[in-house]
Nucleic acid binder design. Structure first.
Lengths: 128, 128
DNA sequence: CCGCATCCTTTGCGATACTG
DNA sequence: CAGTATCGCAAAGGATGCGG
């Protein structure tokens, strides 16, 4: 379970933050919104820079919070997939808003971008 | 300036997170969206639980990032007001999305709420 | 393949005291 | 009023090694 905030639990914004309390969780969500189901090792590669410790920990908390659900395939070698629950998917608008803002920001602040005109994962337009 | 992420700078979501990288900044933004201009001491009281260190630090970074602007009134005793820049205000949709989601979540998970039927700051409906 | 346990360094952040 | 400076602990998080 995610750590509680100092803030009043009845503030909707604070409530949201308490579940999305790390950059990694947000990036994991973004990944799972783009690819509905991914296994552990896929996530570790697609969420660039994350350590197994943080990945494991984030997935645990998100699972406990009911945002992510874990599916184990009883095979050898082991196979585990993670996907967003309905609750997790309902956070889509938040990620969309972040994506849109970031895009606008990068467009008007080209110096902040590492490399120009990249293919880009085009999050917002996905899913018809 | 806010600390850079490990993540690729060309991802819009990661870019957004890099500017909103702490719960306090988000809560400060929420406050400044509700009250267009507030002074240091007002913020310290309205953002419940924040220490002066975190308030000062957050305001510094947000100012460096161009999200917040600082206005000094040359008076005695000193008087300083903070307000969102246009860039900061453009983050409104993100906060709105968080607010809406949090509201829905609290509605369907009453047990997460500290106390029921509070007056509530009614963020989303504000500003006609 | 999918983790968990441990160590160990780094960072976050509150508490406290002091200034223009 | 609106901060700055310093200390010190506690939490975050990377690295590494082991286990089902």
């Amino acid at each position: 379970m995610a750590k509680k905030l100092v803030q009043d639990g009845s503030c909707p914004v604070a409530t949201t933050i308490s579940l999305l309390n790390s950059q990694w969780k947000i990036l994991i969500m973004r990944e799972l919104l783009l690819h509905p189901s991914e296994r552990y090792s896929e996530l570790q590669h697609s969420v660039a820079g994350i350590s197994q410790k943080m990945l494991t920990q984030s997935l645990h908390e998100m699972t406990a919070d009911g945002i992510v659900q874990r599916q184990v395939f009883p095979e050898v070698p082991p196979h585990v997939e993670y996907r967003l629950t309905e609750l997790g998917q309902s956070m889509d608008p938040i990620l969309k808003a972040m994506h849109n803002w970031g895009n606008q920001y990068l467009a008007s602040h080209p110096e902040k971008r590492k490399t120009d005109k990249q293919p880009e994962t085009d999050f917002a337009q996905k899913r018809p």
